[in-house]
Amino acid sequence: MLQSISKASVHAFYADAIPHGRNTAENLQAATSERFNTLLESIDNQTPRTALDLGYGVGNYTLALARAGFRVVAVDQIPCTSLLRRIGSAGDWAHQIEPRRCLAEDFTIDEDFGVVVAKDVLHYLTRHDVETLLTRAVAQAHGANHHYLEVFTGIARSSPSGQLLRIEGEADCSPTAFQHVIEEIYAGWDLSFHWSDHAEQDSRTGRTCFEATRATVIAANPAA
């Protein structure tokens, strides 16, 4: 029997784990990925110096973008306190970060962001919300924009007792369906897809509680 997990309980989990610095099975505290670092280093001055980090979590991608000279709008449903504490008086780039407390699916993209990052957040949204959000981001892109997405597809969750779990409303796309959606939304952009198997273990039982195929998408909009 499939058991449903409420979105409210998921939101509450992260609102507690992130401010308290808990490194969960998904490794919330992980540094920015090598693919992202390579992308960031490759971006030239044709790209607008604005960035959007959807679901910033502990803030590692937000901080990396700000250090690279971007004005960053950082969006997450958790209180901004922990990110503001990390920023502190970190340097000249600290004032370039604008935290916004908002669900990713409720955030209105109404400007041209040179870089958009959405890491480990889109799979929690409905498929309609994912399509709406990314379509809006593409519609606002007028320069040499870059979008970096990490999304879990083909998700299988289970409780410590082995019961199948699903979060209410999550997109639950197969890898093939997700790639098709991205190719439609990003028509005319240069796309690269990277696929990897991902699994997480329950810390109490040692049993696998989450399995998925992680899709990493790098989308580049040719300069207008």
Rank of each mutant, 00 (worst) to 15 (best):
207 R>M: 10
211 E>D: 13
170 E>W: 11
96 Q>E: 07
77 Q>H: 11
32 T>K: 05
182 I>N: 07
211 E>G: 14
147 H>F: 15
8 A>D: 04
43 I>N: 03
178 F>G: 08
1 M>L: 01
206 G>W: 06
85 R>F: 01
133 L>D: 00
192 S>W: 06
163 Q>E: 15
127 R>F: 03
137 A>I: 09
161 S>K: 05
4 S>R: 13
134 L>R: 14
182 I>F: 08
110 D>G: 07
130 V>A: 00
149 L>M: 03
180 H>Y: 02
138 V>M: 02
184 E>Q: 07
137 A>T: 11
118 A>H: 06
202 D>I: 04
25 A>S: 15
11 H>V: 00
148 Y>W: 01
14 Y>H: 10
44 D>F: 01
217 V>R: 14
49 R>F: 13
215 A>Y: 04
102 C>K: 06
65 L>R: 08
186 Y>L: 08
56 Y>Q: 11
25 A>G: 12
77 Q>P: 00
7 K>T: 02
216 T>E: 14
25 A>L: 07
86 R>N: 01
74 A>Q: 10
95 H>Q: 15
121 V>H: 00
141 A>F: 10
203 S>R: 11
206 G>P: 09
134 L>F: 12
196 S>T: 15
142 H>P: 00
197 D>K: 15
187 A>L: 06
107 F>Q: 07
5 I>C: 13
162 G>L: 02
168 E>H: 02
70 F>Y: 11
175 P>W: 10
116 V>G: 06
135 T>H: 00
211 E>A: 14
103 L>Q: 09
45 N>F: 15
39 L>G: 04
4 S>P: 00
149 L>G: 00
152 F>G: 05
155 I>G: 13
196 S>C: 08
29 Q>V: 07
182 I>D: 02
141 A>H: 08
171 A>F: 05
178 F>M: 11
59 G>Q: 04
117 V>S: 09
206 G>I: 00
44 D>G: 14
57 G>H: 08
52 L>K: 11
64 A>R: 12
75 V>K: 07
147 H>G: 11
105 E>Q: 15
222 P>T: 09
18 I>W: 03
139 A>R: 08
183 E>A: 09
2 L>F: 11
150 E>P: 06
30 A>N: 05
208 T>D: 10
6 S>D: 12
51 A>R: 06
